[in-house]
Simulated scan of single mutants.
Amino acid sequence: MIKFEHILLGLFAQRPWSGYDLKKWLSDGGKFFRSNADQSQIYRLLGRMEDSGWITHTVDAREKRPDAKVYTMTDEGRAELLAWARSPYRPPARLQDPDFLARFYFGGIVDPVGLRSLICTELAARQDQVARYRGRDRAARFLSPVPEVDIPRARLLEELTHIRGMAEIDSWIAWLKEMLVVLDAAGVTTPPAPS
């Protein structure tokens, strides 16, 4: 499971950041990794990360604006980031979990074999879900429902939700397969040798 600290360490691996810039990034492109992170939460976390020795800051004096703390990663932070990024990935039950997306996004710090293994592990887990659950009995069982439940409508909504779920997982599997082709073709990962 991904921790917010690992997302921030992944960002610090790319460049120094101020708390304000982190909040701005998380509100825009980073909202898929972590939603609803307010400024005070970010600053508290930055303080804990600095106390842990993972980051350090300098003060950037600004004219006509408040000074800004600009944070950079330390060697201890780098070690923590690499330990997380290179740790075994265990796919959760939830499709498109932020842990996979963060590991994929920050996959530039993982060796080609590890990156390919990450994608293959996620792909195998989702294909297994399809194999196990696609054909399951979905007949809704309504035993003593509350009077407000409209059973035909509830059954239809359940079926439509299932159809949407199938489309999402099928699309996710197709994307994972495409990523293997794209990354192998680009030489970023290496396909296994034919047996």
Results as ranks from 00 to 15, higher is better:
Pro194Ala: 11
Asp28Trp: 05
Arg136Glu: 15
Ala167Val: 06
Gly114Cys: 11
Arg132Gly: 01
Cys120Thr: 06
Ile109Gly: 00
Ala61Ser: 14
Leu26Ala: 08
Trp17Gly: 04
Asp28Tyr: 10
Arg155Ser: 09
His57Cys: 13
Trp172Val: 00
His6Thr: 03
Lys23Ala: 12
Leu118Cys: 02
Lys177Pro: 00
Gly135Thr: 08
Asp150Ser: 14
Leu82Pro: 00
Gln129Val: 00
Ser144Val: 11
Asp99Lys: 02
Ile169Met: 10
Arg48Thr: 08
Gly30Lys: 10
Leu9Ile: 02
Leu118Pro: 00
Pro66Val: 07
Arg103Lys: 14
Arg153Thr: 14
Asn36Met: 09
Gln14Asp: 08
Asp97Tyr: 06
Glu63Asn: 08
Ser171Gly: 07
Arg48Asp: 07
Pro147His: 10
Ala13Asp: 09
Gln127His: 03
Asp137Asn: 15
Met166Asp: 14
Leu9Val: 05
Leu143Arg: 12
Leu143Val: 12
Gly107Pro: 01
Asp51Thr: 08
Lys3Met: 03
Asp99Thr: 10
Ser18Thr: 15
Asp38Leu: 07
Val146Gly: 06
Thr190Leu: 05
Thr161Tyr: 12
Ala61Tyr: 15
Val146Lys: 13
Ala131Tyr: 01
Gly53Ala: 13
Ala167Tyr: 10
Ala140Tyr: 05
Arg141Asn: 09
Arg90Asn: 05
Ile2Met: 12
Phe106Trp: 07
Tyr133Gly: 07
Glu158Phe: 06
Arg65Asp: 12
Met179Leu: 13
Phe33Tyr: 14
Asp99Arg: 02
Asp51Ser: 11
Arg155Tyr: 01
Thr121Gln: 04
Gly29Phe: 05
Lys177Gln: 15
